[in-house]
Amino acid sequence: MALDKNGIAKRIAQELQNNTYVNLGIGIPTLVANYIPKDVNVIFQSENGILGMGPFPKKGQEDPDLINAGKQTITSELGAVIFDSAISFAMIRGGHVQLTVLGAMEVSQNGDIANWKIPGKMVKGMGGAMDLVASSENIIVAMTHTNRKGMSKLLKKCTLPITGINCVKKIVTDLAVINVTKKGFELLERAPGVTVDEIINSTDAELIINGEIAEMSL
């Protein structure tokens, strides 16, 4: 069965490395913070200006002066630090944030990502996504495998205006874990109960399949 949003977040949480700085985007990526493995220490950066972001506050303890980039109320961890937007993007562009997890509307097999604009329909803006994908050494995309119309979001070439080129390293969807290699998409894992054929049928781009494809362990 295909994973739900929390399942995708849970699988991405397995990618977190100990003692690293991580930026989580809006949507499914935000949920990753709920599934950090016990033996892993990560520090979350939110690009509006905090390093050491903690969980959402308890009811009644929210502070209008403490939000994340999704404008949600948050708390700060011990040792957290607050800074302005220029310093925040110095961390991002300067390569100091080691992992970026973000959502996408399309990813192409050479690692291009589109997630900020549907011409004529939705123009909300790129926020910090273009800065993040231009510089982060490791970029993982969290998204559903297909869009609401059932069309593949993993494409040979993006059709929507792109956010960044040649930057996505890995994709975790409700169906599969996919590596973006120089040769294209490599299927690494399948969601529990999902067959390789189902993944191939839901993917517009070519998939490189080497031997048996393991089921995700969640």
Binding site: E47, S85, S135, I165
Partner: peptide
Amino acid sequence: PQGTLAERCRAGGAGIPAFYTPAGH
């Protein structure tokens, strides 16, 4: 891009007329 916006303001105040950034390439 948000980082470009921040840096454009910072640069404006700091007497730097322009700068190069990878964001948006």
